[in-house]
Computed example of a mutant assay.
Amino acid sequence: MTAHVGTVDELFARDRREDRTVLVDATGRDYDAHWLCTSAWKAGNFLRHAGVREGVTVGVAGNGPVALLACFGATLLGATTHPNPPADLTDATDLQALVAPVDELESGRYDLPRGTSMLGYGEKPETPAIKHFDAGLWSENPSFPPQSLAPETGLLTDGGAAVSHAQVLESARTLIDEYEIEAGDRVVVREPLSAVEVAVAGVFAPLLVGAVTVLEAESVDGTAGEDDTQERVKRSEGDEYGTRYTISNATASESTHQIDPAELSLADRTA
């Protein structure tokens, strides 16, 4: 049964801090709901210092747990997240902050509008203008003041119009009902989170129903490590893990529960 919430920030309420697994990263490490909620609150508090608030956009590069925390922290503040944005962001008028690996920021990969905060994760940055997201995250207050967001608030964007909280939740519920996804099931993400539909299917739908997001590993040639993912899913739950779903627009021969993100209807977006 899905949670009865009007906006995604409600999925990080204090009463949802539990010891059930909600995320498995590319190394096979498990993260529980208690960690997710508390760390998302810390991320929101840190992003607030960078001027993140309702009505602005936060670019987030990467597909790992830290990148997801940046997305969730922005969500708690009512900001819109642009996952894995392009390098040229000079025309992004509402980009308040960019969260990315330190080496990418220090390499000059991104062209940003004047005034955009740069928050780097990974190694400690040597550039004074880059704030260390990791250090700020773990030193923040592990609580978050209640927010009151409208369902029409923008949640995700791919650089065009935003998708609102209401639209994301509606699409997630439709997906959950159609595929009969249940709490404890595994949802393996094999497509880039830069696609709004992939983020909805692979992150927000599992979060809503209490399933587990499994972040796909990559092999040395940059392709998905299919066999490695199967082993990690089994290892994380023994022999009694829930039904496994795969988010992919390519044929996944090992799973009969494949979800093509293109099936999600998110054409109507907020302005």
Rank of each mutant, 00 (worst) to 15 (best):
A211W: 01
L155Y: 07
A100P: 00
A166S: 13
G62C: 05
G238V: 10
D158H: 03
G73P: 04
N84P: 02
V209D: 02
G28Q: 15
L69C: 09
P101Q: 06
G154F: 13
S253Q: 06
L155C: 02
L175T: 07
E191D: 11
H49Y: 12
P142C: 10
D134E: 05
T127V: 05
Q167I: 03
P145S: 06
L95V: 01
E18A: 11
L95W: 00
T116K: 00
L112R: 01
T243I: 04
D32P: 00
D88L: 04
A195Q: 09
R20C: 09
G73T: 10
G64Y: 04
L89Q: 00
F144L: 02
T251H: 12
D185R: 07
T213K: 07
L89F: 00
P146I: 01
N84M: 05
G73C: 02
G136T: 13
R17P: 03
E123P: 09
E197D: 13
Y31V: 11
W35I: 12
P113H: 09
Q147R: 15
D185M: 08
A43D: 03
T251S: 05
V220F: 07
M118I: 04
A271H: 12
R186C: 14
R114P: 10
K131R: 15
V102Y: 05
F144D: 05
L149D: 10
E197Y: 08
T246G: 06
Q147S: 13
R53F: 13
R269L: 08
L36M: 15
E140F: 06
R14V: 14
T75F: 09
D88E: 13
L137K: 03
D19E: 12
G115E: 14
A13D: 12
V196W: 08
R14N: 15
L68I: 09
G154C: 09
D25V: 11
S117A: 15
L11M: 12
D103V: 07
E140H: 11
T81N: 00
S117P: 08
E218C: 11
T243N: 04
L89K: 00
T21C: 14
D91Y: 01
L215H: 09
F144A: 05
A166D: 09
L36S: 15
T223W: 01
G184Y: 04
T80Q: 06
A271W: 11
T90Y: 02
V8M: 09
